[in-house]
Design a binder for these strands. Structure first.
Lengths: 210, 210
DNA sequence: AAATAACTCGAGGGCGCCCTCAGGTTATGT
DNA sequence: ACATAACCTGAGGGCGCCCTCGAGTTATTT
């Protein structure tokens, strides 16, 4: 990450760390809109110091979320190792949404069409590449309906983000129930004719921002 | 609405009307967070006048959304008249989400767990009562899976609200595709065993705010 | 221990939005 | 036409957040 630049001074490294820990926690609890001043205060550091280390809110995102999104690689890998392709596919979705449900900040980040920063966006793209294999495998096995695409996963992520946001604390399992309904609609036997995905969507929704 | 109170002065009535029209349009285009000052400016009225007529943002909601939600009654009625209970049910959901997709403000209002004002909340409750019949009818006919409840419709409304928010303008039909997948999972033949709805959720999610 | 570079601090200006209120304006009944 | 109540106006104070910058402090090097 900080390759090439000389190491931070000891106190600076400590402060950076405190900021990162605090930001991770507050974003996780309250979402991406936590006031930066509160992060600084909670971390026990001045607002000026915060801006020294993270000149923008997005700099925090870059430092926090790619690492967190790496969990997706592991989840996808586990999915591909499942002997039953359908179970792998379903497990992948469950893991993905569980991730969203655990971290309100991550949930917010994924709910946006264009993940705000290039680092986060890159991490999402890597995830998307993995999910393609999971989907393809389940489709080949004849269990997943043929017209389901990776773009549909992105749509599902949006959908679930709001379910999670509104139901956490009241009915923490609501998203699982919702996912069950949805999965039942994704099985080959359940498939009914439907409108095809809009090409526009598939192209633009994963493209970089303007 | 203004029963009992004496009629407004002519200019006041005009201003109230201009404010309502402008607010409806701006909320519809940009959501519930449009600055009140912008509504006043666009309506060609001073900010003070705006506060004379609508002392809070919620007062606007009360004046705008119940009428719009009345469309739900009509949609539900149409659903109950459909000779095929499943078609009626599917048509109801489609009509509901089409309503959300047409009006960003309404979409925002429905996406919240507790619809902020009692007027809007009441209108939602009426809608919920109607949907119960639509569901019951489709279930009795054996087409809709037995474990689907009115609360699940609320969850779906949350889910779709985000899909609509993120996809409008890029892929205006994305929510229809998403709904198709979902409907395929709601047919009796598609149903697989799943976790039951949390009682907590059914109770609290439709209750009034604290 | 002194010199230097690295870092921290927090007051303060800017911005956008909310909401109020005193004083001016306009409609309405007589 | 006049009086009165109803209504309109917009400057202005408050608030929360963003972000900067010059002065002060601290770690590191020699």
């Amino acid at each position: 990450m900080a390759t090439g630049s000389r190491p931070l001074r000891a106190d600076a490294a400590r402060n950076r760390d405190k900021l990162l820990v605090t930001a991770t926690q507050l974003f996780g609890e309250r979402g991406l809109d936590v006031p930066l001043e509160e992060i600084a205060r909670t971390a026990g550091v001045s607002i000026g110091t915060l801006y020294n280390h993270f000149p923008t809110r997005e700099a925090f995102f870059d430092a926090i979320f790619p690492e967190r999104l790496a969990a997706l690689d592991r989840i996808a890998a586990a999915a591909l190792e499942d002997p039953d392709p359908w179970n792998g596919f379903a497990g992948f979705l469950e893991g993905l949404f569980a991730l969203q449900a655990e971290d309100r900040g991550l949930n917010d980040a994924l709910a946006r069409r264009f993940p705000s920063t290039s680092e986060v966006s890159d991490a999402c793209h890597r995830g998307l590449r993995d999910v393609d294999q999971v989907i393809e495998r389940a489709r080949r096995s004849g269990q997943l309906r043929a017209d389901f695409t990776a773009q549909d996963v992105a749509t599902l992520v949006w959908a679930m983000s709001q379910v999670i946001r509104e139901s956490t604390g009241v009915a923490p399992q609501a998203w699982r129930r919702c996912l069950s309904f949805f999965l039942d609609g994704l099985r080959t036997e359940a498939a009914h004719p439907m409108t095809p995905a809009e090409p526009e969507q598939a192209g633009r929704a994963t493209a970089d921002r303007p």
